[in-house]
């Protein structure tokens, strides 16, 4: 496999997907039920995950996978219901952008991602009922930041 060729294709396509993800998250901020935007963020995360897996960029694959899973839950719910979720998705986008920048600048796989962010993305959605959650329990992001 011509690694340089596929690295360039990855950079080109991942950059487009990240821009689309950014546009769609901004759209969801205004219109949380916007189906096209929900689908676009999901597809972008999915595509970046698949390409990163092919190039053994494990940190990118792992983060994109968490974002994809998070968006799968939003798809099922039919809307992005809580600003905490949106903040978490924007943090995920920013982290992915930084990782792609590392590939662009160094040509190497980025180091492991922010474990706290990965854990927060895997946690329950702020809008999902959590049987263990008490009435005044802070949202997952705030909890993870402690």
């Amino acid at each position: 496999m011509d690694i340089a060729k596929y690295r360039n294709l990855f950079l080109e396509e991942a950059t487009e997907h990240l821009a689309e993800m950014s546009r769609s998250l901004l759209a969801l901020e205004k219109e949380p039920e916007l189906r096209e935007a929900i689908e676009a963020v999901f597809r972008a995360a999915h595509s970046i995950k698949s390409m990163a897996a092919s190039l053994s960029y494990d940190s990118i694959r792992s983060l994109a996978h968490r974002l994809e899973d998070r968006m799968e839950r939003v798809r099922s719910a039919g809307r992005l219901e809580d600003p905490e979720d949106l903040g978490l998705l924007f943090r995920g986008l920013e982290a992915l952008e930084q990782m792609v920048a590392v590939v662009r600048e160094s040509g190497e796989a980025p180091p492991d991602g922010d474990a706290e962010l990965l854990a927060a993305l895997s946690g329950p959605a702020a809008t999902e009922p959590d049987p263990k959650k008490k009435a005044h329990d802070p949202a997952p992001v705030a909890r993870a930041r402690r």
Binding site: M1, K5, Y6, L9, E13, R43, S47, S50, M51, S54
Partner: peptide, 13 residues
């Protein structure tokens, strides 16, 4: 496939 990356990969295989 929506990704040129993936189409190229299959083509090369």
């Amino acid at each position: 496939d929506d990704a040129l990356f993936m189409r190229e990969m299959i083509r090369e295989i």
